[in-house]
Simulated scan of single mutants.
Amino acid sequence: AAPEAAGWSVRPVPEPAAYGAAVAAAVARMRRGEFSKVVLARTLELTSPDDLDLPAMVQRLARRDPRGYTFAVPAGAGRTLLGASPELLVSRRGGQLVANPLAGSTPRSADLAEDVRRAAALLESEKDLHEHAVVVDAVRAALAPYCASLHVPERPTLVRTAAMWHLSTTVTGELAERDGRTASALELACALHPTPAVCGTPTALAREVIGDLEPFDRGLYTGMVGWEDASGDGEWVVTIRCAEAERRTLRLFAGAGVVAASTPEAETAETGAKFQTFLHAVGVDQ
């Protein structure tokens, strides 16, 4: 059932104007040649007058995006991390691996013709194709040492969630044996993390920029969540489209990849659209 209006109070951290200023500052540094990409995030802090119904939220997340990866895991000290990630970091089945980096996004539209137009425009967007290529190149470089063969398509395709269109590349590979064994799913995930899709490039400098410009601690956001069995098979996804729940409070996270062609208005709008995944699950109309 649709969630009842709960009288949520909503507080953005940072305010949208401050987030836009951070994007502008990052773009200025990129245009000076300091780095090529950074992912900047913002949060919404939601407070409910009633206790949170987490099982109902998880059900709504799963039903709204049935092809996504819905999760709820303990986050320590009475907190729960829950969300519906569209992005597979890596999976391993026997000697085969699959990674599905996403980068480059545009909001969906309720109007079918406009929705199709936005999807087509995303496939031709130089800014988004560049952002996506940076991530795919990093995934290729991280996985190549573990593989006997690796297949990376030349151009991305599209995947959709209820809220967003994303550029997507499905990378497949055959693992190589080293010292009589192949890398486990968790080893592969650790080799990939953090990708430029959640951090930036070069990685170390992008992390410094995030620390300078984001006025909050990401916590488990943009980490990875998943499983692995005793044989080393498993599946790990990027911890995005998520929130941290504690008592009557939800802290929502959303980020956007910022490159030299980015604008504060576009990235603020993109993060706003990404919040919709969770806002729909809790019945907040914003």
Rank of each mutant, 00 (worst) to 15 (best):
R118P: 04
R118H: 09
R118M: 02
R118L: 13
R118W: 03
R118F: 04
A119Q: 15
A119Y: 11
A119P: 12
A120P: 00
A120C: 07
A120G: 03
A121Y: 03
A121C: 03
L122N: 05
L122F: 10
L123V: 10
L123G: 13
L123P: 11
L123M: 15
L123K: 12
E124D: 15
E124A: 14
E124T: 09
S125E: 11
S125I: 07
S125W: 08
S125H: 07
S125F: 06
S125C: 12
E126F: 04
E126V: 10
K127D: 11
K127L: 10
K127V: 10
D128C: 07
D128T: 04
D128M: 07
D128G: 04
D128W: 08
D128Q: 15
D128V: 05
L129N: 08
L129W: 09
L129E: 07
L129D: 06
L129H: 07
H130E: 10
H130P: 00
E131Y: 09
E131M: 08
E131P: 10
E131T: 07
H132C: 06
H132V: 05
H132M: 07
H132P: 08
H132A: 02
A133K: 13
A133E: 15
A133T: 14
A133G: 12
V134M: 11
V134E: 06
V134N: 04
V134D: 05
V134F: 09
V135L: 02
V135P: 03
V135K: 01
V135R: 01
V136N: 02
V136W: 05
V136D: 01
V136M: 05
V136K: 02
D137G: 15
D137A: 15
D137H: 15
D137N: 15
D137W: 12
A138D: 14
A138P: 12
A138E: 10
A138N: 09
V139K: 01
V139T: 03
V139E: 04
V139D: 04
R140H: 15
R140A: 13
R140P: 11
R140E: 15
R140G: 11
A141W: 06
A141G: 13
A141K: 11
A141T: 12
A141D: 14
A142Q: 11
A142Y: 09
L143K: 05
L143P: 09
A144S: 14
A144F: 11
A144V: 11
P145W: 14
P145L: 12
P145E: 14
P145Y: 13
Y146H: 14
Y146L: 01
Y146E: 05
C147P: 11
C147R: 05
A148S: 14
A148M: 03
S149I: 00
S149T: 10
S149W: 00
S149N: 00
L150C: 07
L150M: 09
L150T: 06
L150E: 07
H151R: 03
H151E: 04
H151M: 00
H151W: 00
V152L: 03
V152G: 02
V152Q: 02
V152F: 02
V152Y: 02
V152N: 02
P153C: 01
P153L: 00
P153I: 02
P153E: 00
E154M: 04
E154N: 05
E154P: 02
E154R: 13
E154S: 13
E154W: 04
R155G: 01
R155Y: 07
R155C: 01
R155F: 08
